[in-house]
Nucleic acid binder design. Structure first.
Lengths: 98, 98
DNA sequence: ATATTTGTTCGTTGATTAACGAACAAATAT
DNA sequence: ATATTTGTTCGTTAATCAACGAACAAATAT
């Protein structure tokens, strides 16, 4: 009977996974994990979505801690958040037994 | 200007990631990836959610292809879907550069 | 025959997500 | 001073998600 909730570790992975759970966000993450940075303007040109929608996706990735933005007025340069990226890597690695 | 959509690979990862994007589902996946199988009744007892809610989560994991259920009347035995699990492993591995 | 066990499905509710366009803010360029 | 560029925020709409309890289905046990 004694109930057991998911662990904090599992919640953390779920949080990262959720952020990765959309094609557009995967596109952005993969781009940023390959080249160091990009401007969101570049993404708006590449992707078949409107800039406000992209902005929302970037916000979600930011809130999940996977990316970070740096102002280079008037543009914003987005990069992987290296610290959290490392954490995500090790969490997934352990979970997937890679 | 020429628009580029996320690749099929990115969509696939997003699909797996979305399924992993909830604490309860992570709990189940981690359990099943460690021990070979389990009955959903066991999960209902462990987890602080009602059986119908659990059933929904299991359905989502099934739809994403990460687990499979086998009838052992009157119970149902759930296991990892090994083939898709392997695919997910390699997709995440490549994506995360592990 | 009836009750029990085990899960799924249905209906409901409230919250969250995804997408768009319009309006806005801030810096830069004219 | 004004227009342009670059992104975010707001408001809206439709869809999906998460949770619950009740009803149902199927097999097993009494």
């Amino acid at each position: 009977m004694s109930k057991v909730s998911p662990t904090e570790r599992q919640k953390k992975i779920a949080r990262y996974a959720k952020a990765m759970g959309h094609p557009t966000r995967m596109y952005v993450l993969e781009l940023l994990s390959k080249q160091s940075c990009c401007y969101s303007g570049d993404l708006t040109e590449e992707l078949p979505i409107v800039k406000s929608t992209l902005s929302q996706h970037l916000k979600e990735l930011k809130n999940a801690g996977l990316i970070q933005g740096e102002i280079e007025a008037p543009k914003i340069k987005y990069c992987i958040n290296k610290e959290n990226w490392k954490e995500a890597q090790s969490l997934f690695k352990e979970f997937l037994k890679l």
